[in-house]
Write a protein that binds this DNA or RNA. Structure first.
Lengths: 205, 205, 205, 205
DNA sequence: CATGAATGAGCTTTCATTCAT
DNA sequence: AATGAATGAAAGCTCATTCAT
């Protein structure tokens, strides 16, 4: 009585093959310009097979989001375990973002380029995972403020988004100019950490 | 440098009517989900008429970019005329961005949501105007650095993008949560100015 | 400000051409085995043109029903105008049915073969026209009964359907064995009239 | 003359289970809108199993016809055994038809609704069983005529079809309005017998 | 015999674009 | 310049059928 999707079972890697293919194809053409048939071809499966694993084309994109967000959030949780210092947490957050960007540039490109569209146009998809991600950010900021390390005249609700906007735009730049980017992920992470901490830290007498 | 029918004559405002209609329609459905026929209807012209004023659907979007960018750049040039203080320039830049956002939220939504896609997928369009816009930003930063007011350990090439990313993401948030946004444009502009200047200013003695 | 379908106007016969083509194609393959593209080809229009005149494939079939039913009902009304004798009315009804069958065997085939399907599966289509047609039949029967010419121990609700069933099945036979039918329409009409009247007439002392 | 697995063994009722399931599914959706997978699910067998027992989807429908026709013909032969009176035979024929209709309305619905389609579109299927069924009918009529009980001015070839058309249409009505039919099978059978016999009987002196 | 995942041809419908008027 | 009916390529998705296990 196997489940339809055989999640996690070996002997069947089609689900993953389709996702991997979709990343490549979406990164190449964008979601709207990508054809399901092209994904199928790239994954070496028949067109119809796609629909055994995904409800429809939108569902493939959503699955990519979820997959990526789980990846990021899980990495963050790992690294921040036992860390107390808000400054260190900021460092970890930014580094994790850029490391994943460097490791999976295609996936990052798709997320970065299509996330906004989807946020607006896939109405039924509430994008909870993304809110969770932003939540981690505002938790860090609030923690730093509570501990008296960060300034308290900034709205976490605004700053978390500004913060994300920086990472996202730098990521976009990296991804679009790849593989000839003028700046390395390492460098962007460092500059941004420097920049953000300067802005956040309370200046004491 | 359009010359099509720039005769200044009245009785022909169709070019503008089509652009205005496109803004509404794109804001409503996104570029890919918008139909040329819907734009035509919204503009009260025939489907075919669109093609007298624009090469194709992509061209309408590109025209919107150019229009918006000219608007922003021209507003910035006006306001910064005679201003020397880099701090003041930062303030002006941010304020201009959010003011236009507030005045033309639909247009802003379209630019913000579709710019990224287009940047990558309208291959032939090099988006010079956007580069000009970013250029103003790095000029301000470099100016501040030269004048010894801003730190000199930050890369203008990186920071200008981080800077734009903040505004863009905050704008997206405003636009998507409109008309019930938790934060006013005013407030976002102030918080961001505060944040950015804290990060940029050199700490002396 | 022409209306979409230009009903009745000359210079545009596409609506009719599509209907005529559909009759041929449906008669050849049946509704479900017919492709819209084949109808388009038969009508010498582009595939997309079909959708300027009809909502979808189902709508073409429904239009054929309506067209046929209007045709029949109108012919019946014409011929029965001023006729009082129920016996004569029965004759007229049967003759009209078989005449139209002979004149438009393809259309008849489609109606006969697909009407039943549609009755069940196009739930949203209430098939009022067909009920009107049956209504004429039961009116004739009731009239004959009231006038004391027909028997009064038969239920018009049942007999009208039995009556229609006879015509329909004979029509089906004619259409399926066409053009080599063993019996002419004339002969079937006469035999059926004879049969039905024998059954309906009251036997007086 | 199936030989596939007619071993009389229990542990294998799949053939019948599939047929029963097909009746339900076809009655629910019609032949063309029914999916083989749905039949398989309803029968609690795998999709592929269907093809061990039937050549293809068409073959399932054909098997249902054959099954039904055998059932009817066998019932008729039973009941008419030893019966000589043509009037009584007509009564038996009609009653048998409506009894089976009442007992297996789903099967009747499928036969009634899909028989016509199939008659024309399953080219290779010559529908001999249906011809046999009609043959019984014309035999009855001819017998009555020969015996001088029925009129001799009616063509058996025409009347047998008119006769069948009545039963079929009444059956369709019953089946479609089920389970809230206005008329019972009993009543329809009686009315029709009455009607038909009035038409068939020779009026003497 | 039985399974059900996989296949891929095939279909309806959409919509950017054209062009005769 | 303006129209909008017509075009037809294109693509998402379905489902009867197969075949490796």
């Amino acid at each position: 009585m196997k489940t339809k999707l055989m999640n996690g079972s070996r002997n069947n890697d089609k689900h993953k093959r389709i996702l991997d293919a979709a990343v490549k194809v979406f990164a190449r053409n964008g979601f709207f310009n990508s054809k399901v048939a092209e994904i199928a071809k790239e994954a070496n499966v028949a067109d119809g097979t796609i629909y055994l694993y995904f409800k429809n084309k939108d569902d493939i994109l959503i699955s990519l989001f979820e997959y990526r967000m789980n990846q990021v959030i899980s990495l963050l949780n790992d690294r921040m375990k036992g860390v107390d210092d808000p400054i260190e947490k900021v460092r970890i957050f930014i580094n994790a973002h850029f490391e994943l960007l460097e490791q999976h540039p295609n996936l990052a490109a798709v997320i970065t380029l299509e996330l906004r569209q989807s946020t607006k146009f896939m109405k039924e998809y509430d994008n909870q995972k993304f809110m969770d991600y932003l939540g981690i950010l505002s938790d860090i900021i609030k923690d730093g403020t509570t501990k008296g390390i960060f300034r308290n005249d900034l709205s976490p609700g605004i700053i978390k988004r500004a913060f994300f906007g920086m990472m996202d735009e730098l990521g976009l730049y990296y991804v679009l100019s790849s593989p000839n980017s003028q700046y390395s992920c390492r460098m962007m992470a460092d500059q941004m950490t420097n920049f953000v901490l300067s802005a956040l830290l309370k200046l004491n007498g």
